[in-house]
């Protein structure tokens, strides 16, 4: 191991250990995992009954020697929807908290000056922090996913195949990138604030807008969401009629899509929902097609990640300069 990677590893381990020891982080992780378990339980109970019905039909069809048996319309991966939504919302709060605690802890323990007294470059500091945080967030995502997948198997009586598990792993990786962005936000906002708690409040304000407000506006402006049961259904129009009518609302729909696109959460959601069969229209397609279809969302996710990592590096560099000038 080179000297630089040794330093990065030491910083990452410090970040990981401190986070794991934090009671606040533990409490939030318990809330996330419990909420995931409840959501999977709720959806799996109904799913188990539907699966039993299908298996009864299949057994009867086989016994009667029917030549064609209808494939199962059920999608066990879609049962993870609640778990993904919790990662989107509560996971992001946890990531911001992780970033906040990382800075606040160094300030209150005065360890920042100690680290700077060692020959550690800004790049090593940034990498060390990020790797440690990614380790914590990966542990969190892994715990959520394992609970969700086990819940589908045990409660829904349907264990995922290797291919489905691979999809879940891809979604998990995207979730770690998504949460990493919020971690960077937490660190940047807290470092820039003279009082760490104010930085936390600013980061939570951004979270509120990105995770809740922008997707909510996009959802509310959806013409079909204006009436309970759907506007187009109330007007007696099918999918073709909806498409024809929406051609008269190109500008409106473009604005709505633009608002949704401004939200990082929506990009993660589109990718995750496509791969986990949440949207029925995607269920017939293979993994390659789905990744190609959602490549713009993946690109946005990566662009946000790169921008926030660059912001983190810039903030740490600035903090270092400010500290040096204060010392001299």
């Amino acid at each position: 191991m080179s000297e630089a990677s040794g330093k990065i590893f030491a910083l990452a381990r410090h970040e990981y250990r401190s986070a794991v020891r934090s009671r606040t982080m533990a409490a939030f992780a318990v809330i996330l995992v419990s909420a995931t378990l409840v959501s999977v339980y709720v959806s799996s109970v109904e799913y188990a009954a539907q699966l039993a019905d299908y298996q009864t039909y299949r057994a009867a069809a086989l016994a009667n020697g029917l030549p064609r048996i209808a494939p199962s319309p059920l999608a066990p991966l879609s049962l993870l929807r609640g778990a993904l939504e919790y990662l989107e919302i509560i996971g992001a709060v946890i990531a911001i908290t992780l970033g906040y605690l990382s800075v606040a802890r160094e300030r209150s323990n005065r360890t920042l000056a100690l680290i700077r007294s060692r020959p550690v470059s800004i790049n090593e500091q940034t990498a060390g922090r990020l790797i440690g945080a990614v380790g914590v967030l990966s542990t969190l995502v892994l715990a959520t996913v394992v609970v969700a997948v086990a819940g589908v198997g045990v409660i829904g009586h349907d264990w995922l195949s290797i291919g489905q598990v691979f999809r879940v792993v891809l979604v998990g990786l995207a979730a770690v990138v998504y949460l990493g962005i919020f971690y960077c936000l937490g660190v940047i906002a807290t470092t820039r604030a003279s009082l760490a708690t104010n930085g936390l409040i600013v980061a939570l304000g951004v979270w509120l807008v990105v995770v809740l407000v922008l997707p909510q506006i996009g959802d509310t402006l959806d013409a079909d969401n204006q009436v309970p049961g759907g506007l187009f259904a109330a007007l007696g129009l099918g999918h073709d009629g909806e498409v024809t009518i929406l051609q008269h609302f190109v500008g409106y729909e473009r604005t709505r899509t633009w608002i949704e696109d401004a939200s990082l959460t929506k990009h993660f959601e589109r990718f995750a929902f496509a791969l986990t069969d949440v949207k029925e229209r995607y269920r017939v397609h293979g993994l390659g097609w789905l990744i190609n279809e959602t490549k713009a969302d993946l690109a946005w996710l990566l662009a946000y990640a790169l921008a926030l990592v660059a912001g983190l590096r810039h903030t740490l560099r600035r903090q270092s300069r400010t500290a040096s000038s204060t010392t001299t």
């Binding site: 419990s34 909420a35 409840v38 919302i89 969401n225 009436v227 959601e269």
Partner: peptide, 24 residues
């Protein structure tokens, strides 16, 4: 706040977190 706003509606009425953002 997270528990009251997102978790309890799921437990008591099965309202998913994102669905609770819609008035309908």
């Amino acid at each position: 706040w997270v528990a009251i706003t997102f978790v309890l509606p799921q437990v008591t009425s099965g309202i998913r977190p994102v669905a609770s953002l819609n008035p309908l």
